[in-house]
Computed example of a mutant assay.
Amino acid sequence: MAHGGNVIDELMADHREVEEMFSRLQAMSGAGQGLRDLIDEVTIELVRHSVAEEQYLYPAVREHVPGGDRMADKEIEDHGRVEKILKRLEKMNTDDAQMSPLAQQLMDEVASHVQDEESNLFPMLQRACTPQQLDDLGDKIRRAKTMAPTRPHPAAPNSPTASKLLAPGAGLVDRARDFVTGRGTS
Rank of each mutant, 00 (worst) to 15 (best):
Q33K: 06
T150R: 12
N93G: 13
S100N: 08
P131N: 03
L165E: 05
T181D: 07
L172D: 05
A2F: 13
R151W: 10
A111L: 04
T94H: 08
A176I: 14
A176D: 03
T43R: 10
R70Q: 06
R143L: 13
G169S: 09
A170E: 08
N6L: 09
A162S: 15
C129Q: 08
E75W: 00
V42I: 14
L106E: 01
S100R: 02
A103M: 10
C129K: 03
A167P: 02
E90S: 11
M92D: 09
A31N: 07
V180C: 04
H79A: 05
K84H: 07
G5L: 00
S186A: 04
H64Y: 09
Q104L: 04
V61R: 03
A111I: 01
D78M: 10
I76D: 10
Q105V: 09
G182V: 11
R127H: 12
A170I: 09
G171Y: 01
R142S: 05
V7S: 10
R151I: 01
K145Q: 13
E45A: 05
V18N: 08
E75L: 05
T146W: 10
T130W: 10
G30P: 11
Q104H: 06
L57K: 02
G67S: 10
C129M: 14
E117G: 03
V61F: 00
L38C: 08
R177F: 06
G4D: 11
Y56T: 00
R183L: 10
Q126C: 02
Q26W: 02
H79C: 00
Q98F: 06
L121M: 14
F179W: 13
L25I: 06
Y58F: 14
L102G: 00
I141T: 01
R177M: 15
S29C: 02
A72M: 09
R62Y: 07
M92N: 07
L137V: 04
D96K: 08
A111G: 14
I39P: 00
Y56S: 10
L106V: 12
